[in-house]
Design a protein around this nucleic acid. Sequence first.
DNA 1: CTCAAGTCTTGACGACTGTCAAGACTCTTC
DNA 2: GAAGAGTCTTGACAGTCGTCAAGACTTGAG
Lengths: 241, 241
Amino acid sequence: MFLAKCHELDRSPTLAAMNPVAAPAERSFRNRQDKYDERRVQLAESALATLGELGYARTSLREIAQNSPFSHGVVHYYFKNKTALILHCVRYYKSRCMTRYDEIVDTALTADELRRGFADKLLETLRTEAPMHRLWYDLRNQAMFDPELREDVSAIDNGLCDMIDRVLTRYAELSDAVPRYDRNVAYSMLDGIFLAALLEHLIERDARTEAGETDDASATESSDRLRDKAFTLLPDLVAAP
Amino acid sequence: MFLAKCHELDRSPTLAAMNPVAAPAERSFRNRQDKYDERRVQLAESALATLGELGYARTSLREIAQNSPFSHGVVHYYFKNKTALILHCVRYYKSRCMTRYDEIVDTALTADELRRGFADKLLETLRTEAPMHRLWYDLRNQAMFDPELREDVSAIDNGLCDMIDRVLTRYAELSDAVPRYDRNVAYSMLDGIFLAALLEHLIERDARTEAGETDDASATESSDRLRDKAFTLLPDLVAAP
DNA sequence: CTCAAGTCTTGACGACTGTCAAGACTCTTC
DNA sequence: GAAGAGTCTTGACAGTCGTCAAGACTTGAG
């Protein structure tokens, strides 16, 4: 047992592992460590898929394992316990979703282009990542009951607030205006609109698939409305300087 | 077994029961029926208290019974199963909270009075009914995963939207203005702000009690900020006609 | 009082959960 | 190829859950 196991925060690469021309023993170590990390990512992805489908409450370790190439016992080899796995998932998820609008922010040349790009992206993520979004809201809600989740949930929430703030600040710049509201207020308002659209979207979506419709089930009228709402609302979130 | 049991929607009073000078047998029937209804209310209240404390996921029937004067088996005498109890709770909860701002709407004489009254009431309900609010958000979120809850959740959500709409419509009237946003958009935005404040409030609150502070634990800085936010935001939600 | 209907408690059931230990398998190193 | 560390599977454990049936207690009618 010379490999760092799940029991500690073992994210720091060892000294030897930093060396590009390592001795065979050390390269092997690297390989093992890489494989180990890869497995954790693999498990996190299986867990996220399951969590997005069933929600935090009804997701069991056996269910997660069934959505992965492994058996249920393996989880405790890579993670101390269930909450450790879920927290790892949450952080992993965070690292992927925080930069969603950055490309648009960086490339848009006019306020209207940014506004349209943002609204389109909002629509797209609602349609293609609905399970992940409902999982996020589920976790954030669980944090109201379970203090163990609060630190990570707050971190993600702040990150999302920053993400929105970058959009609004840039939009204000391009509009020769200034943000009208406190960043947290603006974030909360947009988040509330997105949350409502998500709920409506999921209800519509399931109603369609239940009716046996063969259309692209991810396209709903509610998600279309979300784009319009965001598009219309954005100018109201800035004010003349 | 001549009394209507839990297995059906038995809310309709019988013909005989409508008679104010009923025969003894019928009065007895009324008494029994009343007691039966009272028990259901009693159980619903115990369940709501438990749900507000533990959340939807971690609330068991045994826990609910422990917060009531009864034992765990009695639940299945008054409700078909767990979901029936919870749905009953949800409807019961709905009937109590929908009129929260109506008195202010009806009595306020000026726009500013309404605005202040609304913001104060918002603050008050955040502080005194935090567990119920987080339960509501929990249930609404569960509806994203569990179709069984959607009908009731949608009904409540619409009711809350109406409630907010009454406030805004009246506020617009008193301001010689008109509502600026679609009612659903306005509701979603205010809801988002309230949700964020609730989460922040709970975190602050628990951090204080954990630190062993003896102050009135229901008062937090975040809840104060909520009042200011609502107070400031309200004028922006209406526009010149 | 007697009896029956209504009400509630108790204890059990099968299913499911997170956790963990024992062992089998795989791969690297000598 | 032998040895041993690393990886994964299997099966069991203690606990909890929703559900339900059997019976004890309570209440009111005759």
